[in-house]
């Protein structure tokens, strides 16, 4: 399917990343986060991972602040999250020196692939001659924080007994107003998002190449975020959580819409077709699968 690059960049991004976006949003990890059932330690570990991501994004943006793709939305005073994350982590771990804290050290020592892939990609872009794709990463993170992030804030504050009014421990979710330094309300956040989209359109007006590279990168950014979410919390505990939900809501199957079922059937058909045509059946098929897996792994790490 050809992408119509005559549309404004913000529209393109919204429409062309719908699915990967939803996938990131509805992934098991994201759900664990939203449930407020994560242990405080898991939540802090997530914040630490986010800090690394934002640190990567924001250093890149600072470095290329005057690049025509990045300049229209470059506004660290308004957007930069790394300092807020650092403050929240310090508050939750009760030490300013949180980088020396065991949670942080263990996280890095555990070789968290999805996190490292994310960071590697950010550095790659920042070091490349055209840092335009950084806009995609800013878009995926900041607009998410300005939207769903606000719901998480309340859940998190309640779950960990944080004082929302004082903002200690939840400053990551707070933004200032666009034109003043007062704290932003929900309506103001909508205006910030509109402002950001306008800035992206200005950047996109440079030409279809810029749009294409940003749109392509945005899909990747969502995938990287889904990967990051996979590190949230404890998979095993999630299993329990799910079966509990299933047990308590036996009639939930009836809730699937026709379109969902149709799509699943379509997917099965396409998958079956591909499996047969591609010869991914039987023993030979297994060998091919292994090969593809290896290739796929290389694709993520080398790209």
């Amino acid at each position: 399917m050809a992408i119509d690059y005559s549309r404004p960049l913000a529209t393109l991004l919204r429409e062309e990343t719908k699915k990967v976006h939803e996938e990131a949003e509805t992934s098991a990890g994201a759900r664990r986060l939203l449930s407020g059932h994560l242990s405080k330690e898991d939540y802090v570990r997530f914040l630490i991972m986010l800090w690394h991501v934002y640190d990567g994004i924001e250093r890149g943006l600072d470095r290329h602040a005057t690049h025509p793709t990045l300049e229209p939305t470059y506004n660290p005073t308004l957007l930069a999250r790394a300092p807020h994350l650092s403050a929240d982590i310090a508050f939750l771990l009760e030490t300013e020196d949180w980088k020396e804290h065991p949670i942080h050290k263990q996280l890095l020592a555990s070789d968290p692939k999805p996190l490292f892939n994310y960071l590697r990609r950010l550095h790659e872009i920042a070091d490349s001659p055209d840092p335009s794709p950084l806009l995609a990463h800013a878009y995926v993170r900041y607009l998410g924080d300005l939207s769903g992030g606000q719901t998480i804030r309340h859940t998190i504050a309640k779950a960990y007994g944080l004082d929302e009014a004082a903002g200690l421990g939840v400053s990551f979710y707070a933004f200032k107003e666009l034109r003043t330094s007062k704290p932003a309300s929900q309506g103001e956040m909508k205006r910030i998002k509109e402002w950001f989209r306008e800035g992206m359109n200005t950047a996109g007006a440079q030409g279809p190449e810029v749009k294409a590279s940003v749109v392509e990168e945005a899909s990747r950014a969502f995938v990287l975020n889904t990967g990051l979410f996979s590190l949230v919390g404890d998979e095993a505990a999630e299993g329990k959580e799910e079966s509990k939900a299933e047990a308590s809501k036996p009639s939930s199957e009836t809730a699937y819409s026709v379109s969902q079922v149709a799509a699943v059937i379509a997917a099965v058909c396409v998958a079956h077709f591909a499996l047969v045509v591609g010869g991914f059946t039987g023993n030979a098929g297994y060998q091919k699968l292994v090969a593809v897996e290896g290739w796929l792994r290389n694709l993520w790490s080398s790209n």
């Binding site: 509805t26 759900r31 939900a245 299933e246 939930s252 199957e253 809730a255 969902q260 997917a267």
Partner: peptide, 16 residues
Amino acid sequence: DPNRTAFSSVVSLPLA
């Protein structure tokens, strides 16, 4: 509706 989650990801993959 916790199950909705799993299904929407399935749907999205082929489209992605």
